[in-house]
């Protein structure tokens, strides 16, 4: 015998957002990472152009900017940027390979391997950023 418990309203139509990798497998996570890093890199590119625009203000403005760029907070942002580039680039390799019909059955393995490579390269770059 099934028992009704309570009836409560939740408001909006509760169809799940497509951006949620919870309950999903590796390929879905790769898809979400690709989107997020892609959007992040586009935003970086715009910021970068604004920053480069400071060159037009002459040497003083530029020197001040370089000083800011050397602050630890910005260095952390640099590491995040590098992470984004690595993930996007290496996952791009995965998409290209399997997108042409090769290695499809081991796409999860390829993904995790490339992400391991990304993690190693990231650790190395982080070390470079903070010590050199």
């Amino acid at each position: 015998m099934a028992v009704p418990i309570q009836q409560k309203s939740t408001g909006a139509r509760a169809l799940q957002a497509w951006f949620n990798p919870l309950k999903r497998s590796a390929g879905f996570l790769a898809f979400v990472l690709m989107r997020v890093t892609g959007i992040g890199l586009v935003i970086y590119l715009l910021l970068h152009m604004v920053v480069i625009g400071n060159l037009l203000r002459g040497p003083e403005g530029w020197d001040a900017l370089v000083a800011t760029m050397k602050s630890p907070a910005v260095l952390v942002l640099d590491v995040i940027l590098i992470a984004g580039i690595l993930i996007h680039m290496l996952n791009g390799i995965r998409v290209t390979i399997i997108g042409l019909g090769f290695g499809t059955s081991s796409h999860k393995g390829i993904f995790w391997t490339l992400m391991a490579v990304a993690a190693l390269l990231l650790a190395y770059s982080g070390w470079l950023v903070f010590t050199k």
Partner: peptide, 10 residues
């Protein structure tokens, strides 16, 4: 309408 969740126990 709008949708809601109903709960039942089995």
């Amino acid at each position: 309408d709008p949708p809601r969740y109903d709960t039942f126990q089995v």
